[in-house]
Each structure stands twice: as C-alpha cells, then as structure tokens.
C-alpha cells in the first residue's frame, strides 16, 4: 500500500505548474490536498509518473470577500472555510457545507478546488458551487478562462478540465436576499453522503441541487408559486427526483437513494421556508 515511484515537482507559481503539467502530459497529475488522490496512489489505482504538488503555489490560496462576490483560491482548505467568520457572514452556505466534509483531520488538508476537480459524486463542493452559480477559473498554456460550475462536472470523476490546466480561483456571486441550506444523510458525520441537497431560495424561485446520487450535481427548480406549501413541494420534488439518473451501491439502491434525496431536500427547504 505504497505509491509507485514518481517524479516530484513543487512549483511556486501557476505558470510553472502549468508548464510542468503540460510537459508531463498524460503521465502527470496535480496534487492539491491529497485526501482523495493519495489514497488512490497508495492503492496504486493512480500511478502518476510526475506529481506536481500545488501546495507551494502562493497564488492558489487565500480568500477575499467583495461586495458582490466571494473569491476563493483553489487551495483553500475545507477547515479554513468552516472557520472563517467573514465567510460565514458573507455566504453562510459555504461554511455550513465545509463543516459537513469528511473529518477534522481530512478538512485540515483537503481543498475546495481539489474536491471540485476530483468530482466525486458524493462531494459537497460541486453541488454547492453549482447551486450558487459560481465560476471556476482555469489556467492552461493558452491562458485563463472561466467555466460555470454547473457545466464543469461531466460525470463521476470526470470534468471539463484539460490535462495541462489547473483550477486557480473560484468566483462565487453573493445574492444577499437568497436563503440557503444544505442537508445530507451519511452513516456517520463525515462519511460519504448517501444523498444530499443544497437549496437556494429567492422571491422568484427555489432550486435544489442534489449530490450523492451517482452522477454530476442535478438541479431541480420550482417557481415561487409552486414552492409555497410542503405538500406541493413534496409531490413535485418526488416526481422530479424520480426522473433523475440515480446509481445505487452497496449502501442503498437507486430508489432508496431517491427517497433519501427527497427527504433531505425537504429538510433543507423547511429551513429556508421557515
């Protein structure tokens, strides 16, 4: 249970990192917090010949709260998000979601950007960032461009990022009037979510973004009119969730997961509707 040999690179700038990844091509892999990649390397499920460690790239850390948006460096640790008073105030959903991720000893290393790029179907960040209409800034040899979070995850462990690109910053608009909540069911606090839902509610509509269902985050939208009372919400959510592509596993089949998805969606909704 030890990784195979690899060439270790520790760039200090984004440009250097991009260059090293481009040179390594298909044999290269970027290392962020390592809480998913290192287990995979220990099992030798991942055997990168070149490992580009992003932890020394200063430009990838830090967070900034602006009037209209929050900006997170891709290497911001989950625990830093959970602990930030400023963030808790500016965008409470971020801190709430961060606290649900893994265990303390995982959150202190795991990063927001790493989680998004890894794109585990049960991960909180892809759903949270989709729900908040965040944009992901990617940098590659051709320069920087932005991708909406909702278009970034293509499938389990598959995203729109290029082999020689890195995710540098995450831009999250602040919508002060939106009410938000996240709920999930896991076997223990910190375990992989068996189903989870993020809710964002404004005077116009209410949107639920689901995670833990086996694929990319899925969003269900109801108009404010349709999201008025619980009976109606429950009926419509049940119908819409029934139509989602859901994968079962040893912890529960697809239909069971759909039921749990509706339960967590309603729990989250009750909190924003109250």
């Amino acid at each position: 249970m030890k990784p195979v040999r690899f060439k270790y690179q520790a760039p200090h700038t984004v440009d250097e990192a991009v260059k090293q990844l481009a040179e390594a091509g298909i044999d290269g892999k970027a290392l962020a917090g390592g809480q998913s990649l290192v287990p995979m390397m220990n099992f030798r499920l991942a055997r990168p010949a070149v490992l580009v460690d992003l932890n020394g790239v200063a430009d990838l850390s830090g967070m900034a709260v602006h009037e209209d948006r929050v900006e997170l460096g891709a290497l911001t640790r989950h625990q830093a998000v959970a602990d930030s008073e400023r963030l808790r105030h500016a965008l409470p959903l971020l801190a709430e979601a961060a606290g649900l991720i893994g265990h303390w000893g995982i959150r202190t290393r795991g990063t927001v950007g790493g989680s998004v790029v890894h794109a585990d179907p049960s991960a909180e960040w892809p759903a949270v960032l989709t729900a908040l209409s965040a944009e992901l800034e990617l940098v590659g040899p051709q320069g920087a461009h932005r991708v909406p979070a909702g278009e970034f995850v293509l499938g389990p462990l598959t995203t729109a990022i290029g082999m020689d690109e890195i995710l540098t910053r995450i831009h999250i608009p602040r919508v002060p009037e939106a009410r938000t909540a996240i709920e999930e069911v896991a076997r223990r606090p910190g375990d992989f979510a068996l189903a989870g839902a993020v809710v964002v509610s404004t005077s116009e509509d209410t949107r639920w973004t689901f995670f833990g269902l086996g694929g990319p985050p899925e969003t269900v939208r109801l108009s404010a009119d349709d999201a008025r009372d619980e009976e109606r919400v429950k009926r419509q959510l049940t119908e819409r969730v029934a139509a989602l592509d859901v994968t079962g596993d040893m912890h529960g089949g697809a239909d069971w997961r759909r039921q749990v998805a509706v339960v967590v969606a309603l729990r989250a909704w009750r909190r924003v509707a109250a």
Partner: peptide, 13 residues
C-alpha cells in the same frame, strides 16, 4: 497544531 492523517501526506510536503 492541527490534526492531519500522516498516511495521506508525503514527507517532502
């Protein structure tokens, strides 16, 4: 001062 899993880090880090 913060807990980490030492099996998920390389010593060089």
């Amino acid at each position: 001062g913060e807990p980490v899993r030492s099996c998920l880090m390389f010593a060089v880090q």
